[in-house]
């Protein structure tokens, strides 16, 4: 009996969270203090001035900062987009028809609403992680980008490049992704140049179960969070932090279904 307690306590100790802040020094020159202000290196403070520091912190204009999700309507000539830290794609396996056009528009609206247009961000492109809506031609991509938000989706759906989407799904499948749903899928690669290879990490989010705008928006928000907080962790080898993120994603994916099962039973 005492041995059993010992083993279980040992398991509990192994599961204790690592102190991530102690492992890595902060990347930014300025950091948030306990009192809510900013603490910067004296030289940087002199160069920037207090207002400039705060403005840069919130706009993300400093290079080398956190990964910022963005969106882009891209034609074949703009694909893959250059100078971005990483890129993903919203891949529909099939074109919209009169039967499911409403669903495509709903997902497109959530895409536009949750991701800022790449060119409107002050963050440099090398700190942006762009999620592409593939379009049949560069001219159509530019035309869709220039449209007002409420007119962009119908045009983007008409001009959707199914060829690019199917190529992306095939490349992701090569790296272990399983497209066993209705789609669409949000797919992203690390490194971005590794698209098509089998040994690269593919971040994937399945939107097959999306039936309402709220669900689409929730999954797009999850995608943003995956990119901002988890992508580098998930992409860079096996670490305890990666294990933690994987367990969290698994628990969050299946937890609600599990609760419903309990309620039904």
């Amino acid at each position: 009996m005492p041995l059993r307690v010992f083993f279980l306590l040992l398991c509990a100790l192994l599961a204790m969270p690592p102190d991530a802040s102690a492992q890595e020094p902060p990347k930014d020159r300025c950091r948030l203090t306990e009192t809510g202000g900013f603490e910067c290196d004296p030289e940087d403070r002199e160069k920037l001035g207090p207002d400039a520091q705060d403005r840069d912190f919130f706009s993300g204009a400093q290079p080398g900062g956190a990964l910022r999700p963005a969106r882009l309507f891209a034609g074949p000539g703009m694909y893959p987009p250059e100078n971005y830290r990483g890129y993903g794609i919203l891949a529909f396996p099939s074109r919209a028809t009169s039967y499911d056009r409403e669903r495509h528009e709903m997902i497109c609206a959530a895409y536009i609403a949750s991701l800022p247009e790449s060119s409107t961000l002050e963050t440099p492109t090398e700190d942006q992680f762009v999620t592409i809506w593939p379009v049949k031609s560069d001219a159509e991509a530019r035309a869709v980008t220039s449209l007002p938000l409420d007119e962009a989706c119908p045009a983007a759906i008409d001009a959707y490049s199914q060829e690019a989407a199917l190529r992306a799904i095939a490349a992701a499948t090569e790296a272990g992704f399983r497209d066993d749903g209705l789609g669409p899928y949000l797919l992203a690669w690390s490194p971005p140049s590794g698209i098509g290879r089998s040994d690269v990490f593919v971040l994937a989010l399945d939107l097959s179960n999306v039936r309402s705008y709220q669900q689409a928006l929730a999954l797009m928000t999850e995608w943003n969070r995956d990119i901002e907080t988890d992508f580098d962790i998930l992409a860079n080898g096996f670490t305890l932090e990666r294990l933690r993120v994987k367990i969290r994603r698994w628990a969050d994916s299946y937890g609600d279904g599990f609760l419903k099962l309990l309620e039904a039973g």
């Binding site: 628990a251 937890g255 609600d256």
Partner: peptide, 8 residues
């Protein structure tokens, strides 16, 4: 999510 907590 609450479900995530419950399952864990």
């Amino acid at each position: 999510t609450d479900g995530g907590m419950a399952i864990l």
